[in-house]
């Protein structure tokens, strides 16, 4: 119950407050979105395979976001921020595709 409430409250907050992403955090927004998508699809897949675990979900999401943000931040310092954020997006994108493929196989057996 609490998780569903949390999701609803989060979306409502985003729509209601319409937060302006600060310019300094602008490069992290796409990373955060892709990491969130990855977490959601991973969770859905685990749910389908009946081994979903909210603890794993929370920890993997938080750690992925932190690592991704750190890589982008570090890349910015090194002057290769865009390349590293591309790398992060590619890796997370591959995970999204893999998870989506697993879900698809489960549903359509194809």
């Amino acid at each position: 119950m609490i998780p569903v409430l949390g999701l609803v409250v989060g979306v409502a907050l985003g729509l209601w407050l319409q937060p302006d992403v600060p310019t300094g955090l602008q490069p992290y927004l796409p990373i955060a979105i892709v990491a969130a998508l990855d977490a959601v699809l991973g969770g859905l897949r685990a749910m389908g395979e009946k081994r979903f675990n909210d603890r794993v979900f929370v920890i993997s999401f938080v750690s992925n976001v932190i690592i991704a943000a750190f890589m982008v931040f570090f890349g910015d310092l090194l002057g290769v921020g865009s390349q590293l954020s591309t790398g992060v997006i590619v890796v997370l994108g591959i995970r999204i595709f893999a998870n989506a493929a697993a879900i698809r196989r489960r549903i359509f057996h194809a």
Partner: peptide
């Protein structure tokens, strides 16, 4: 965490 995800998507 889910609230965070929702906020990010909405934003």
């Amino acid at each position: 965490v889910l609230a965070l995800i929702g906020t990010v998507f909405a934003a």
